[in-house]
Amino acid sequence: MKTARLNTLLASLLLIGPAAAQVASYDCANAATSTERAICASPSLGRKDVMVTTYYDLLLHLKPATAGMAYREFDDRLRNEQRQFLATRNACGANTSCLEKSYDDRLAVLRKTVGRNAAVVFDRPTTP
């Protein structure tokens, strides 16, 4: 239930924020790679790109749920995971099914991490 409310909040932010006017989280006029051009050409991939960026930015501002984990350690791990995602995504080239899977996998991890960390930040128990 709490995760559903958080997802609704994030969806609302996407609809009212400046990212809603964008096709992707970056300027498609400057898309330099086949991957970036494929994302810009696909409304589904563009939405997922904006969602990944939104979750990632949100997590950089939430504090870690893991007891004893230092903020810097959490941020470093988050940044490393994002770099790994980008490398995996970029390896897809213009293959849209590969890109869809890459984004779906990353979104699943980010949603789970947001749910755990939001529960700690807002002092609410997490559901398994």
Rank of each mutant, 00 (worst) to 15 (best):
91 A>P: 01
70 A>V: 08
58 L>A: 12
17 G>E: 03
1 M>H: 13
122 F>V: 13
1 M>W: 09
17 G>Q: 00
81 E>F: 05
39 I>Y: 06
121 V>N: 11
69 M>Y: 08
5 R>V: 09
27 D>T: 09
71 Y>M: 14
63 K>Y: 13
120 V>S: 13
80 N>K: 15
87 A>P: 00
86 L>E: 09
27 D>G: 02
79 R>G: 00
106 R>Y: 06
21 A>Q: 14
1 M>Q: 07
97 S>L: 14
24 A>S: 03
26 Y>Q: 05
36 E>G: 08
32 A>D: 10
103 Y>I: 00
39 I>M: 12
16 I>K: 10
8 T>M: 06
10 L>N: 03
116 R>F: 08
34 S>Q: 14
70 A>E: 15
98 C>D: 06
18 P>E: 11
82 Q>P: 00
44 S>G: 12
101 K>T: 15
14 L>V: 06
113 T>D: 06
118 A>Y: 07
54 T>G: 00
24 A>V: 05
114 V>L: 13
125 P>E: 15
9 L>W: 09
83 R>A: 11
21 A>H: 11
63 K>V: 08
12 S>Q: 10
119 A>V: 02
19 A>Y: 00
15 L>E: 08
25 S>I: 01
68 G>M: 12
101 K>G: 08
111 R>Q: 15
91 A>H: 08
8 T>E: 08
116 R>C: 00
55 Y>G: 07
127 T>G: 13
37 R>S: 11
57 D>F: 05
30 N>A: 13
34 S>H: 13
113 T>Q: 11
85 F>N: 01
121 V>E: 10
80 N>T: 14
8 T>W: 08
89 R>S: 01
57 D>G: 08
10 L>T: 05
26 Y>R: 03
49 D>I: 01
54 T>A: 10
76 D>G: 04
114 V>F: 06
109 V>H: 02
36 E>M: 10
70 A>N: 11
120 V>L: 13
119 A>L: 05
50 V>E: 04
116 R>V: 06
127 T>W: 14
64 P>Y: 06
122 F>R: 14
79 R>H: 09
94 A>M: 10
45 L>P: 06
115 G>W: 04
38 A>G: 04
59 L>S: 02
123 D>W: 14
18 P>F: 08
23 V>E: 07
127 T>K: 14
46 G>T: 09
113 T>R: 01
72 R>K: 15
100 E>F: 08
72 R>D: 11
112 K>Y: 05
34 S>G: 13
120 V>M: 11
4 A>S: 08
115 G>N: 15
104 D>Q: 12
123 D>I: 15
83 R>E: 02
101 K>D: 10
30 N>Y: 12
44 S>Q: 15
54 T>E: 03
74 F>S: 01
106 R>S: 01
22 Q>G: 00
8 T>R: 09
35 T>V: 05
104 D>S: 14
25 S>Q: 00
65 A>I: 02
82 Q>G: 09
78 L>I: 02
16 I>F: 05
68 G>D: 09
13 L>T: 10
